[in-house]
């Protein structure tokens, strides 16, 4: 029951939805593909988010309660979460609540979350450059291909590439070469990888539907 019921749901749901795609009928197009696939799964997703939220709060609350090392940071996480919750959900719109533009929630998003995330990702520029410095060594033909392609694309995407093109009267046309690399060899490899990913997805979907792949059930009974 504990394992067979979920497996039966996966099988039946999988078969129904596989054929629903090919069935141009009201029940298939409205009930299955609109009502259940979009609306119902969105509602299920809400509850899944609540579970994730519970896990986060539980983890940090436990850290604070047990006063583990660096528990003070957990207080900051929960404070950030609580402030967003209060201004985003509890406070009425006339007092600056809600999620619309101009609300306190929006102000925090624009002045705290956006700069934090942008800076966090920009920080990767330093590490990715350092990694490139160590990795970009023309030890083999393959590594040389990688090095040349990356260098051309990087030069083709900055004003320096344009300047080189102007200075050499179009002889070293990095922007044009960049576009060619992206449109031809890059697209060819992306396409091959897309084939592989799609076939892998289909195979995994079939394995899940037929109960061959059961890791999602978890380890216990």
């Amino acid at each position: 029951m504990k394992r067979s019921l979920p497996l039966a749901i996966v099988f039946i749901g999988g078969i129904i939805y596989f054929f629903a795609y090919f069935t141009p009928h009201y029940f298939s197009e409205y009930i299955l593909q609109q009502k259940i696939l979009v609306d119902w799964l969105k509602i299920l997703g809400l509850f899944a988010f609540v579970i994730g939220l519970y896990s986060l709060i539980h983890l940090h609350a436990t850290k604070i309660k047990r006063k583990v090392d660096n528990w003070q940071y957990s207080v900051m996480t929960l404070t950030g979460l609580t402030i967003m919750f209060i201004f985003g959900i509890l406070v009425p719109e006339k007092f600056g609540g809600g999620i619309d533009q101009g609300s306190i929630y929006d102000w925090i998003f624009m002045n705290v979350q956006v700069p934090l995330q942008a800076t966090m990702f920009s920080l990767l520029a330093f590490y990715i450059t350092s990694a490139a410095f160590r990795a970009f060594k023309a030890r083999s033909v393959e590594a040389t291909c990688l090095l040349i392609a990356a260098t051309i694309v990087m030069l083709g995407r900055v004003p320096l590439g344009e300047s080189i093109r102007s200075a050499t009267k179009g002889f070293l046309d990095f922007p044009l070469w960049t576009q060619w690399i992206l449109d031809v060899p890059n697209m060819a490899t992306k396409r091959a990888i897309t084939f592989g990913v799609a076939l892998g997805m289909i195979a995994t979907s079939l394995k899940i539907m037929f109960g061959i792949e059961r890791s999602w059930l978890g380890g216990s009974e």
Binding site: L53, L56, Y73, S74, M76, T77, L78, T79, G80, L81, T82, I83, M84, F85, G88, Y105, I108, F109, V112, Q113, L116, Q117, M120
Partner: peptide
Amino acid sequence: HIMIGVSVGY
């Protein structure tokens, strides 16, 4: 840590 809290709250 503030970023994580604010992101989840968002």
